[in-house]
Design a protein around this nucleic acid. Structure first.
Lengths: 202, 202
DNA sequence: TGACACAAACCAACCAGTTGGTATGTTTTG
DNA sequence: CAAAACATACCAACTGGTTGGTTTGTGTCA
C-alpha cells in the first residue's frame, strides 16, 4: 500500500472499510486516515464520496479479475471441469480469511445503497454482471458439450452462482462464521453437478 | 399504523426505513417523523437506536411468522409438496411489491452491522435461524418419506434456502429488478426437485 | 511561471442522545 | 374517602461531537 499512488491508496482503503463497516458507516476522514492522505487530497482526486465509491467498483473489478485469471481452473480442458473448478475456487477464497476479507465489495454496497444512490447501485450491478459474464461463457461451453438440450438458461445460471455466493456471505455474516458460506457453496456445486448429470442421462 | 401504540409504530417505521435505506442511513429523527412520535418518546421507550434495532428483529419475526402461518402450503399432505409450496410462496411474496417491500429486514441489517455491532448481528441471526428451523422441519419430513438415504444434511439445506433467497435479494437490488429474485428462486426449486428426484431413482 | 498535487483550517448541517419539564393515570397511606 | 406519593408516557429545546464538503495556502516540477 505504501508505494501506491494517492488514488489507489484511497481505493484500497474504501475496499477494506466498506467491506467491514458498509458505505454509510465509513467516513471520508476514516478513509483518509487509513490511506494516509489528507482530506484536501481526497477532494482533489474525487468530487465526492459517492464518486470514490463509483470509481472503486471499477478498481474492484480489475483487482478481482486478476485473482480469477490466475486461478488454476482456466487450464482445464473440459469446460464442465472449469465450471466446477470455478465453484471450488470460490470456496478456496474463503479459507484463512476473515469475513471482511472474503466478502464482496459490490454486493455489500449494492444492498445498502440500491434505493438511495442510483449511481452506486448501477456501478455495482455492472461489476457483478462483468464477472457473471465470465462464468456464463464457461457455462455456455459446458452446456454445449454436456447438456445441449437442457432447458435451463445459461445466463440465468451464471447469475444464480453469484446469487448463491452473495447469499452465502449474508448468512455467514449473520452467524459470524465463514464456514457457513463454504457450506452453501457446496450446495451450489451439487446443483450444477445434478443439472449436468441429469441432462446427460436423458 | 394509526391505532398502533408508540412502540409498534416505531418498529413499523424501522422495518420500512431500514429495508429501504439501511440502518446507518436511517436517523432517529426520520424514524420519529414516520412513526409520528417525538424524539423524547423514542428515548422513553428505547435506550438507544441499537436497542430499537435489536427489538425490531423480534417484531419482524412475529410479523413475518404470521404471514407464513397463513400460507396455503401448510395444508398439503405430502411434506415434499409443502417444501415446494414454501419455495413457491416465497416467489409469490415478490409479486406486485417493490424491493424495499419484499426484501429481508434481518439480512439487510446483518450485512451492514455484522462486524460493528455484535448485538444487532446476533439478533438478526436468531431471527433467520428461527425461520430456517420451520423450513428444516418440513425438509426433515420430506426427506424421511422420499429420500431417507440421501447424504445431504437437512439443516444445511434449510439454511441454503435462506441463503439463496438472501442472495436473490442482493442481486435484485443491484439490478433494481424484483424479477431477477424470482428467477433465482426458480433455480432453488429445481435444485430441491433434483435432490429428491435423484434420491428416489436410486 | 503556471498547472498540478497536496495540506491545514474551517464550515454549516446533521447526528445520537440528554435535559428539565408536563399530563395523566395508579397506588399507597392518614 | 381524599390527599399525597409515585409511575408512565410523553414533549420541545438543547448538547457535544461528527458529517461531507469548502476554502485558502504551499511546495514541486515541467
Amino acid at each position: 500500500m505504501e508505494q501506491m499512488g494517492t488514488r489507489d491508496r484511497l481505493f484500497m482503503a474504501a475496499l477494506s472499510l466498506v467491506r467491514r463497516q458498509g458505505y454509510d458507516a465509513t467516513s471520508v476522514d476514516e478513509l483518509c486516515r487509513l490511506a494516509e492522505v489528507t482530506k484536501g487530497a481526497f477532494f482533489h482526486h474525487f468530487t465526492s464520496k459517492e464518486q470514490l465509491a463509483v470509481q472503486a467498483t471499477a478498481f474492484w473489478t480489475t483487482f478481482t479479475s486478476q485473482i480469477f485469471e490466475q486461478a488454476e481452473y482456466h487450464t482445464f480442458e473440459d469446460p464442465l471441469d472449469q465450471l466446477i473448478g470455478y465453484v471450488e475456487f470460490r470456496r478456496q477464497l474463503l479459507v484463512g480469511r476473515s469475513l471482511a476479507e472474503c466478502t464482496c465489495f459490490l454486493g455489500t454496497m449494492a444492498q445498502e445503497k440500491y434505493d438511495s444512490n442510483p449511481a452506486i447501485r448501477e456501478a455495482c450491478f455492472v461489476g457483478i454482471a462483468i464477472h457473471a459474464e465470465t462464468v456464463r461463457s464457461i457455462i455456455a461451453a459446458a452446456k454445449a458439450r454436456h447438456a445441449p438440450c437442457a432447458t435451463w438458461n445459461e445466463e440465468s445460471l451464471a447469475l444464480y452462482t453469484q446469487a448463491v455466493i452473495q447469499g452465502a456471505f449474508v448468512l455467514a455474516k449473520a452467524k459470524n462464521d465463514v464456514a457457513l458460506a463454504d457450506d452453501m457453496i457446496v450446495h451450489l456445486r451439487r446443483y450444477i453437478e445434478l443439472l449436468f448429470q441429469y441432462a446427460k442421462e436423458d
